[in-house]
Design a protein around this nucleic acid. Structure first.
Length: 749
DNA sequence: GCTATATCTACCTCCTGTTA
DNA sequence: TAACAGGAGGTAGATATAGC
């Protein structure tokens, strides 16, 4: 099947775009936060028309008048108080960001909370320091040292408190002492200063209003609406835990200060050889640029992720967690520094706006006042930290940003694609010519205003979101188009389902012969760069593949394996998808990479619809169309995938050792795990310190990211899909008869 | 301030009854 | 006779509370 519209030729994009100098742009934004533009203003859309990648063009259709307007703006459907809204209501437009942050932290209870926190900024190791430090025997460890060391082992293996008590009990008997903490009371006392950043928050179950956090020795918080006392109720699931953002970042900065020599500044990359702008990290995106314009050049940023996962095997309880990862560390370190920001466990739908409220307040505080910390030379420092990317999957994202779900009309959070009715649901994103306009912060605000006025979702915008109150945060610009869910377990698996659905289809690859052949290739090919990643299972099990397996299949195996087994036109379209995905995951993405990726992905969409029909046009495939623009806003796709966060869930679940107080157990153990290396570093003697730190060190696994990221030559990977062979990290898998890889140099490439 | 004990929650396993 | 559903009882561990 050959189709001229499907296999479009590359357009010389350089003629159709204008580049704006980054510094000029920066000054412009610093002076007046008027228009936001990326480093290249006018890339082309599929129709050849010019539109702005970042603002999404302002050529929005006039909103349709709805005669059934109802005033429901006063209704408390979001769960936070009207006062809170009123405080924020003048935030829209071009107000002063600093003032907005001050507003968020200015109410009375927050001031009290802040004061309490300052009072509590005591030594987190105070109780551990009080343990006897004399050697238990000649040249032996002290009780303090053994306690820290044994606790580290127990924390690493997510042991319940009962095991800790028993083990310390044995140690008390063995060492003829009573000083090891062998009762629950003593253990809790030992933890107390470490758990200061942990807070329990309550909300009123009947009004769905945030009531406040519980404090020892103080009255229970009161619902701001019904004025009744709110008490923790396991049955009502009206409580959740957070860890203080200030402490999290303080520890992170202090812990890494020596290794980074105190330099955490996020700076944009220099230009490439052809004076092209390069996107190497989050600081290269237009969103970071805008933040630097608003908050100053010395800011640092962090990403946050919200998602839920089942809590137990055989119950309907789920864990909703908010995780945070810093952007100011090296890329390799970031995925190991994901910390737990908030956690809620329950049977019902998590009240996301309420759970995110303390996080938003904390974020406003550290954006305004910065985080005070001491560097490795003992020098007092202050660092401003701002949220950069909100990461969520297709289910959590609409709840987080207040948009319609993906299969509702206008379900794409990044553009105004209307969705097509298919069966009983709006769930198909067919190709539109011209392409629907991209959403911008301004258009989002307009739609939101109308939605609040009418009480009905307006072009996919349903309600105000609490994360919109984050300092400098704009929806949808700061929300990442997520590659793991849309690409690896989304489009990749969907296509495999299509290719394996009906034996009558010419593109069916699930015949016994083809399946056996594919499995043989999969099992025999060993990719050197992925030696430690999850091993691939056969193609028959693709439905149970993990995301990383789907990614390995897509980026490394599928094309060379399918060369002789799949029809050319199907492979051509799949190849274009891989080529575009590859370009956007690279460690250094040029402007031409982005433009080429955009054109390739548009070809993929056209081709996919022609080959498999309108019913195959899923929202995941549609979202891939927005990957290039997301890279211009937020940097390479790999910097805000869900992999590091989803990978944290198994550890969270391991921390649950009882069905009672699940969220508390998880948050306590997460904090202990963060603090014990600090205790070990300070309190232990050399040998025991080395051993304990080694125990606590997280295993650094290689992630199944594209080999390009690890240094394969650009020209090799760029031409990856053109040849009947794969080039991976300098190795060529030339022919599958040999089933071995060979060194590129020896092949005279 | 601290300890010991009771209480509570919710998951898991086993047993029994019902249905096809 | 197999498969399934539902209930009873067992259990771990967090939390509450009485009492020293």
């Amino acid at each position: 099947m050959k189709n001229s519209s499907m296999v479009m030729l590359y357009i010389d994009s350089s003629e159709k775009r204008q580049r704006v100098d980054g510094d000029e742009l920066f000054e412009e934004e610093f002076e007046e936060e008027s228009t936001t533009t990326d480093s290249f203003d006018n890339p082309v859309d599929s129709s050849g028309d010019v539109y702005d990648y970042t603002t999404g063009g302002e050529s929005l259709q006039e909103p349709v008048e709805d005669e059934t307007q109802r005033d429901r703006s006063h209704e408390p459907e979001d769960g936070f108080s009207d006062e809170f809204f009123e405080e924020q209501s003048d935030e829209e437009g071009d107000g002063n960001d600093m003032e907005q942050c001050e507003n968020l932290t200015s109410n009375e209870s927050d001031m009290e909370e802040e004061a309490d926190l300052e009072d509590q900024q005591c030594d987190i190791l105070s109780t551990l320091r009080k343990l006897p430090n004399d050697p238990l025997f000649q040249d032996g460890p002290s009780i303090a040292e053994l306690t820290v060391s044994v606790l580290s082992v127990l924390i690493k293996h997510s042991s319940p408190d009962a095991l800790k008590i028993d083990l310390f009990g044995v140690m008390n008997v063995a060492f003829k002492t009573r000083l090891f903490p062998d009762t629950q009371y003593q253990l809790k006392k030992l933890y107390a200063p470490i758990l200061i950043p942990m807070r329990q928050h309550l909300f009123c179950k009947s009004c769905y209003e945030y009531a406040g956090c519980t404090q020892k020795g103080k009255d229970a918080p009161v619902c701001p609406k019904c004025k009744r006392e709110v008490k923790k109720s396991v049955k009502d699931e009206n409580f959740f835990y957070t860890s203080d953002l200030n402490s999290t970042f303080k520890n992170l900065l202090e812990k890494n200060s020596a290794r980074y020599n105190g330099k955490f500044l996020e700076t944009p990359s220099s230009r490439g050889e052809k004076d092209e702008k390069l996107f190497k990290d989050v600081a290269d995106g237009s969103v970071h640029l805008k933040l630097r314009g608003r908050f100053g050049t010395d800011i640092n940023t962090y990403n946050f992720f919200g998602d839920a996962a089942p809590a137990f095997e055989a119950s309907k309880k789920s864990i909703f967690s908010l995780m945070i990862s810093p952007n100011f560390l090296d890329k390799a370190d970031r995925c190991h520094q994901v910390t737990l920001g908030a956690i809620w466990v329950g049977r019902k739908e998590p009240p996301m706006d309420i759970i995110c409220l303390p996080f938003v307040k904390d974020a406003a505080r550290i954006a305004t006042h910065g985080v005070d910390w001491k560097d490795h030379d003992g020098k007092e420092r202050n660092t401003k930290l701002l949220p950069l990317v909100a990461i969520a999957d297709t289910v959590a994202r609409p709840k987080l940003i207040g948009s319609a779900v993906h299969n509702a009309p206008f379900g794409c959070f990044l553009c105004h694609h209307p969705n097509d009715e298919c069966g009983q649901a709006y769930n198909r994103f067919t190709v539109r010519d011209p392409a629907p306009t991209l959403r911008s912060h301004q258009s989002w605000q307009r739609d939101l205003k109308e939605a609040i006025e009418t009480g009905e979702p307006t072009r996919g915008v349903k309600k105000d979101s609490i994360i919109a109150k984050l300092p400098g945060f704009e929806i949808p610009e700061n929300v990442g188009a997520e590659a793991m869910h849309a690409g690896d377990i989304g489009h990749t698996k969907t296509l495999l389902k299509i290719w394996s659905a009906n034996y009558r289809d010419p593109f069916y690859i699930f015949s016994p012969y083809k399946r056996a052949k594919i499995d043989e290739y999969i099992h025999n090919v060993r990719l050197p760069s992925l030696s430690s990643s999850r091993l691939m299972t056969g193609i028959s099990d693709f439905r149970t593949w993990k995301a990383s397996q789907a990614k390995t299949w897509a980026l490394h195996l599928s094309l060379p394996i399918l060369t002789d087994l799949q029809q050319t036109e199907h492979l051509a379209i799949w190849g274009r998808y891989i080529s575009a995905y590859w370009r956007l995951c690279k460690s250094s993405i040029s402007e031409s990479d982005i433009l080429e990726a955009q054109l390739l992905l548009e070809e993929v969409s056209h081709g996919h619809q022609l080959l498999y029909g309108k019913t195959a046009m899923t929202s995941n495939l549609h979202q891939t169309l927005h990957w290039p623009v997301t890279v211009t806003r937020l940097g390479p796709l790999t910097e805000y995938t869900a992999y590091p966060y989803e990978g944290k869930f198994p550890a969270i679940k391991r921390d649950v050792t009882s069905t009672k107080g699940t969220s508390q157990q998880v948050m306590e153990r997460a904090l202990l795990r963060e603090m014990l290396p600090i205790a070990a570093e300070e309190l232990l003697q050399e040998d025991l310190k080395d051993f304990t730190l080694k125990i606590l060190e997280r295993k650094k696994r290689k992630l199944a990211c594209p080999p390009e990221v690890r240094g394969a030559r650009k020209e090799e990977t760029a031409s990856f899909f053109k040849y009947h062979k794969a080039v991976v990290n300098g190795y060529v898998i030339r022919s599958f008869e040999s089933q071995k890889y060979k060194n590129t140099d020896k092949l005279g490439q």
